[in-house]
């Protein structure tokens, strides 16, 4: 919790209950609108979503700062580092 509190979250998206790949699409669209270096918080379900979304976001060139298990879902912090804004 200490580390989490040090990171300033710029935007947040709750994708619990949203299935693959729509959760990734929504994450991608959100990141597109953000400036380089800004932090996006993504809430994801266990299973496919937590396996797929962070991997795809990373493949796009963004950085996963943290993945935390919170009760029954995951909280992922992504730093926008992708320069190709499309």
């Amino acid at each position: 919790m200490e580390i989490m509190e040090q990171i300033k979250i710029d935007k947040s998206i709750d994708l619990r209950g949203v299935s693959c790949p729509l959760n990734y699409v929504k994450t991608k669209l959100m990141l597109e609108e953000m400036e380089f270096g800004k932090i996006l918080e993504v809430l994801l379900d266990d299973g496919e979503p937590i396996v797929n979304v962070p991997r795809s976001v990373k493949e796009d060139g963004n950085k996963i700062l943290e993945i935390n298990w919170i009760e029954n879902y995951f909280r992922v912090l992504v730093r926008k580092e992708n320069l190709d804004d499309s």
């Binding site: 790949p21 729509l22 990734y24 699409v25 929504k26 991608k28 669209l29 597109e32 609108e33 795809s56 796009d60 190709d84 804004d85 499309s86």
Partner: peptide, 25 residues
């Protein structure tokens, strides 16, 4: 972002593509 939820879902498989995204759509 000018896409509504239905559009995001309808076009999701091409929005996902590198170099397309919401802006391409």
């Amino acid at each position: 972002m000018g896409l509504n939820d239905e559009q995001i879902e309808r076009y999701s498989r091409q929005i996902i593509l590198p170099h397309v995204g919401g802006k391409g759509q």
